[in-house]
Design a protein around this nucleic acid. Structure first.
Length: 807
RNA sequence: GCCCGGGUGGCGGAAUGGUAUACGCGCAACACUUAAAAUGUUGUGAGCGCAAGCUCAUGUGGGUUCGACUCCCACCUCGGGCACCA
């Protein structure tokens, strides 16, 4: 009988759902395993990339379940975001209706995969029952001073008169009207993630994450150790504070540079003789568009602050002060000491404006150091020169000494910026803040939560840069929580990354209306043991989730500091042409069509088999035929199942158990499947297949092909099925274990090398000694020929593998 | 520019110091068939040879080693990330 996947898959999908075998009892797990896939955005269509994220990792979850773990594998939707607004504008459907409809469709599609999700734990972030807690968390951060409001630049389209999300800026231009986008300063909310920079960096080292991902997070946090030094200003009480990683070059400073926005510029206004010019430059750099920045040829610009001079604290030398936009206001102190001889950017700037270059570090100490004109800056460390009493010391060692000499201090700086969470958008979580004319800015009372999104028809931000929520008077007008006088609500909504920063906690208790999450339940199930998702979320999502977790820990709300103990990324599946899939290229692989043609098991198996998981690669439409044949052959092999087990197959069976177990554990799904294929190839050569052997084979295959294995398991009389109950399912059967004894017995091909070249292979018993192997080799005709009568000088023996003879 | 990660048959890939090319796709021949499809069997890196076999081959060039896809050095190339971070 041919394998009829359609009826079989339908039958088991329904049976599993009814019997709830994938819904763990959350109460008291003996051996918990929290397996999590990154929840998708409900775009309305589950593409093959989703399958690739969800299916192989489900194989991992399934094996763990069979190994006796209480596996929690939940699923949900990251349901706020811009596409819903765009769809609403385009088709006139409300974002919520569009989103919920998509969720319904996608859930059906996800169910088709046969994945073992605990559907009863579903989380949907755009529902008030979820975003209420975003607001609550915001209030906790606010209370601790970790949520604050400040002027921050937003993307502004001067033509549409609207704020744009980053995704709406395409190559520095507005995606709608192609106008060059500028930065506009507006009051926005930020989370103080920088306060956690050191811990976010330090705690990376213990995580079982891809090294590359950890490295990217490290670079993003960007730790740099250096000194903070103060430069005096002639005839002024003001000081310029600078941050430098090279205090050893202090004697080589020939000018100082402030960021154009630096507050001191304003403070020195009275003294500056070319104020007009200065102001013009400041204005220009402020209005600098994204486009400009992208086009920039790296040519340095700047203006000298004429009439003011700074004093080098090391040698009291007077130096010029400049403003230039190559110095960033947002990093360090917003001011630098310029050492053109030892810094590339300073060198370039000095050359353009004809500023002095003074070398203070040389490669080696020479008796007569005439400093020749430098053609390029000398960036390495070396020996100090031209620096009075520090001459002749090693520059690395002089760092501390020189810093101390001028009364500076050593500090650690981070590149990481605070997290801007304000969005001037409709489809997100409203920020729970009100503004009262009398009492000022106040947080919403916790008992007032959730502040629900009001219905709205027009989703474009207002011309003053405010969110569309500002147009809804019913939403906007409220009472002051303090004086009950008239007040206005904050109209910005939160970045959707807020939603995804703690959803893994909510899964335990998605309906809890009293708390965001329960400490006791969290203690039992978290942290997440295995997190699987795309590498594109390497930096932002993972960093934000770690930040939230550390905050919750500090607040005593949970007892762990890192949310994701282990992390794996799936690769990207490309179209058959090797290009990224896109509708316009017409190279999109449609999973629904594949399921209809081949069945879910086949699609699952091929996704696991086609490539190394983290690598991905092009989809080969013919390749899937291989695994389809494999399943058909298993279906046929069932007919050969008899009582007698052949001993011959036992060593291979045990080898396969070990290989499949190890490979799934290590996310090497492709080689796990290939070892099952090898086993089947051998089983087919047998007259009859033992029932035990076949059952073991089915169990090993069950994580990959849950439907067919369940059906065969049932036909072999293991699964008990009544109209409402499922007993003895293969998916909760005990995972096979191997006997190491079988791996050490039997025959192997002893490879004989002479002078490093393979000259012969001899069948031998496993476990033979070096002498036995040598005797076998020396008796072999081919080896004799290769040796040519010469005497063996050296013998290398690798047990159960190879003998290397050197003559 | 800087930092990572790759480059293996016609194709997807396997092998992390020990038989290079497992497994699969494709291709070829044969069997079954009136025929085709499906299925099954066998073969399949390149070159030389009737053959046993020999030589060459994991981006390129060098090195370490009895032995290198694997380790080291230099270069070529593709992909990813960051990008004036002092």
């Amino acid at each position: 009988m041919k394998y009829n996947f359609k009826t079989i898959e339908k039958k088991w999908r329904e049976t599993w759902k009814k019997s709830k075998i994938y819904e763990p009892k959350l109460g008291n797990p003996k051996k918990k395993l929290y397996h999590l896939v990154m929840f998708p955005y409900p775009s309305g269509d589950l593409h093959i990339g989703h399958w690739y994220n969800f299916v192989p990792s489900d194989a991992y979850a399934r094996m763990k379940r069979m190994q006796g773990y209480d596996v929690l594998s939940p699923f949900g939707y990251d349901a706020f975001g811009l596409p819903a607004e765009n769809a609403a504008i385009k088709r006139g459907i409300h974002p919520k209706i569009w989103t919920m409809k998509n969720i319904k469709t996608m859930t059906k599609q996800v169910e088709a995969t046969g994945n073992s999700y605990a559907w009863n734990q579903m989380v949907i972030t755009c529902l008030p029952e979820y975003y209420k807690w975003n607001q609550w968390i915001f209030l906790q951060l606010y209370k601790k001073g970790l949520a604050y409001k400040t002027k921050a630049p937003a993307n502004w389209c001067p033509s549409c008169k609207t704020v744009l999300a980053n995704e709406q800026v395409v190559e520095g231009k507005c995606e709608r009207c192609d106008t060059v986008v500028v930065k506009k300063d507006i009051e926005q909310w930020l989370f103080k993630i920088t306060k956690f920079a050191d811990r976010l960096l330090k705690d990376l080292k213990d995580l079982d994450w891809p090294e590359k991902t950890k490295l990217m997070q490290r670079n993003w946090i960007g730790e740099s150790k250096g000194a903070e030094l103060e430069f005096g200003i002639v005839d002024s009480e003001e000081k310029i504070k600078v941050f430098t990683t090279r205090p050893d070059t202090l004697f080589g400073v020939t000018y100082a540079v402030l960021a154009p926005e630096h507050a001191l510029v304003e403070g020195l206004k009275e003294k500056i003789t070319n104020w007009k010019e200065v102001e013009k430059y400041r204005e220009k750099s402020k209005n600098r568009s994204e486009q400009d920045r992208l086009d920039e040829t790296k040519e340095k610009t700047g203006v000298e602050l004429k009439g003011v001079r700074a004093v080098n604290p090391a040698n009291q030398e007077r130096i010029s002060i400049w403003i230039a936009d190559y110095v960033l206001a947002t990093y360090g102190t917003g001011a630098i000491m310029a050492v053109p001889a030892h810094d590339e950017r300073d060198f370039e700037f000095a050359k353009k404006f004809d500023l002095p270059v003074k070398q203070v570090i040389i490669e080696e100490e020479v008796s007569n150091n005439k400093s020749a004109l430098l053609e390029s800056p000398f960036l390495e460390s070396g020996v100090i020169t031209n620096s009075t009493k520090f001459n002749g010391t090693q520059s690395e060692e002089a760092k501390q000494a020189i810093t101390k000499f001028v009364g500076g201090k050593f500090v650690t700086r981070y590149r990481l910026r605070d997290w801007l969470i304000s969005r001037q958008r409709y489809w997100g979580t409203p920020i729970p803040i009100v503004y009262c004319k009398e009492c000022g800015m106040l947080p919403v009372l916790e008992k007032e939560l959730p502040i629900a999104l009001p219905p709205l028809k027009d989703f474009k931000p207002a011309e003053d840069g405010r969110s569309p929520l500002a147009r809804n008077k019913k939403f906007l007008k409220t009472k002051c929580p303090q004086c009950s006088g008239p007040a206005e609500r904050e109209t910005d909504t939160m970045d959707t990354f807020v939603d995804s920063s703690w959803y893994f906690l909510r899964y335990l208790d998605p309906k809890n209306s009293k708390k965001a999450f329960d400490k006791e339940k969290a203690k039992k199930w978290l942290p997440v043991d295995m997190y699987v998702g795309g590498a594109e979320h390497t930096v932002l999502h993972l960093l934000y989730a770690r930040f939230f977790t550390k905050f919750f820990f500090d607040e005593g709300m949970i007892e762990f500091e890192e949310p994701f103990t282990a992390l794996r990324h799936q690769g990207t599946i490309l179209g058959p042409d090797g290009q990224k899939m896109s509708k316009s290229k017409g190279n999109v692989v449609d999973p629904d069509g594949l399921v209809a043609e081949f069945g879910a098991d086949t699609v699952r198996l091929y996704l696991c088999f086609m490539s190394e998981y983290s690598q991905g690669g092009p989809w080969n439409p013919k390749g899937i035929l291989g695994v389809a044949r494999f399943l058909e052959r298993i279906w046929k092999a069932k007919e050969k199942v008899g009582k007698k087990d052949s001993n011959e197959i036992t060593p291979l069976l045990h080898k396969t158990i070990k290989k499949v177990t190890d490979d799934i554990q290590n996310f090497k799904f492709n080689t796990a499947v290939s070892s099952l294929m090898i086993l089947l190839n051998e089983l087919e050569k047998q007259e009859s297949i033992g029932k035990d052997t076949f059952e073991t084979f089915l169990k090993l295959l069950a994580p990959f092909a849950p439907f067919m294995t369940e059906e065969l398991w049932y036909e072999l009389g293991n699964t008990k099925l009544t109209s409402t109950k499922l007993g003895g399912s293969i998916h909760i059967a005990k995972w096979p274990s191997y006997n190491p004894k079988f791996l050490e017995e039997g025959e192997f091909d002893l490879v004989i090398q002479v002078n490093g070249k393979v000259r012969s292979k001899i069948k031998a018993e496993k476990g033979i000694t070096e002498d036995e192997a040598k005797n076998l080799a020396l008796a072999d005709e081919k080896v004799k020929t290769a040796l040519g009568g010469k005497s063996v000088k050296k013998v290398i023996y690798i047990k159960d593998r190879l003998l290397s003879l050197v003559v």
